[in-house]
């Protein structure tokens, strides 16, 4: 058995509403909010970055699972807002959580799916027959997503992250990973060039040929491999760049709304990029009962999808955090656009 032995989520406490952002640009906030199905987004404070978010998420995952940091054999951090272009976030996280130097660590980047790529790497390492196999691996997806002022992404680009610990001890696994599958093509729908401050995107091209094509291919690919159909799942989680895409893709795949509601977090915190699908999956694990099956599909621009089929085990009720992901969202304080500009250092002189 191999699977998830622990998870932790961290979302900064500050929120800005879509309407407040729209107010600044004299746009119709209510219409945009309804169109995106996003009410507000989480904003990291001036002293938060993908690294601090990763550390907080990692510490929570370790605390709730009871795994000793010293037993981690791998730490991966997936992000598109790593504070350093060269110098790993992962080594900072490993040190800060008290991991042993005897581990492998790396920063990953694949737009919004680098964190789930890290989970796959941890699964492989934990399952490896090589003598250097690891007991536990941790993968984190975290971002302080950069939205260019007055760009469509500004309404959703949010801060937050989730950490997952992978292991294989039967009395520790809370959600067994039955299979994982990826689908990757060269589809340049969204990118950020080296030294560029903000990402650019290809507008409506990010939809059908990009998000929908890959998420659907990922979901169908894995369902075929494990011989399951949408109605076999209790929950489904998809990458959620906004609140609309995951609902639409679920419908196209044949899932019902009730299967995706528990994992739909973007309407309340925005798109946390590398954290997006992983926070949704964490929310599902908050509720899943032993034996329940979960389909989780990430999406990263550029483009690819990582799909996972998980089954909750009997350990899940005693190992998960008392405070649920949705409870955590309630600890919030609203800021206006000016404070948002200050916190995210969007003024040239900051």
């Amino acid at each position: 058995m191999v699977g998830i032995v622990g998870y932790g989520v961290y979302v900064p406490k500050y929120r800005i509403t879509v309407e407040e952002i729209a107010r600044v640009w004299k746009k119709d906030g209510k219409a945009i909010s309804a169109g995106l199905n996003v009410k507000e987004k989480a904003v990291g404070s001036f002293d938060e970055d993908a690294c601090t978010i990763s550390v907080e998420a990692a510490r929570r995952a370790l605390a709730h699972s009871g795994i000793y940091a010293a037993n981690l054999g791998a730490v991966y951090v997936g992000s598109e807002s790593h504070p350093y272009a060269v110098k790993p976030t992962a080594s900072i996280v490993a040190d800060a959580v008290g991991a042993s130097p005897e581990l492998t660590a790396a920063d990953l980047e694949f737009a919004c799916k680098a964190g789930t790529a890290g989970i796959q790497m941890c699964l492989a390492l934990v399952e490896s027959k090589m003598p250097a196999w690891i007991k536990y691996g941790m993968s984190i997806g975290a971002d302080t997503a950069q939205g260019r002022p007055n760009d469509a992404l500004e309404f959703t680009a949010a801060s937050g992250g989730a950490a997952f610990i992978v292991g294989k001890k039967e009395d520790e696994v809370i959600a067994e990973v039955l299979d994982t599958y990826s689908y990757t093509t060269d589809t340049p729908d969204f990118w950020r060039r080296q030294h560029a401050e903000f990402p650019r995107h290809a507008g409506r091209f990010t939809g059908k040929p990009a998000y929908f094509k890959h998420v659907i291919a990922g979901a169908n690919g894995i369902m075929k491999r494990v011989n399951m159909k949408p109605s076999d799942f209790d929950y489904a989680v998809f990458h959620q760049p906004n609140g609309k895409f995951p609902i639409r893709v679920a419908k196209q795949l044949g899932f019902e709304k009730k299967q995706i509601e528990q994992g739909l977090t973007t309407p309340l915190i925005g798109n946390t990029y590398s954290g997006s699908m992983m926070i949704g999956l964490a929310s599902v694990l908050d509720k899943a009962k032993p034996g329940e099956k979960i389909l989780a599909v990430s999406y990263g621009s550029g483009a690819g999808s990582d799909a996972f089929v998980l089954e909750a085990t009997k350990n899940i009720s005693k190992k998960r955090p008392k405070k649920t992901v949705f409870d955590m969202f309630e600890e919030k304080e609203y800021i206006d656009y000016a404070e948002y500009v200050k916190f995210r250092k969007k003024l040239k002189s900051l």
Partner: peptide, 19 residues
């Protein structure tokens, strides 16, 4: 909590630590 404490040089090292 774990936070960025000092980030005085955009090309320099970032100091993280406790708050």
């Amino acid at each position: 909590v774990f936070r960025k404490i000092s980030d005085i040089d955009p090309e320099g090292p970032i100091a993280y630590g406790y708050k």
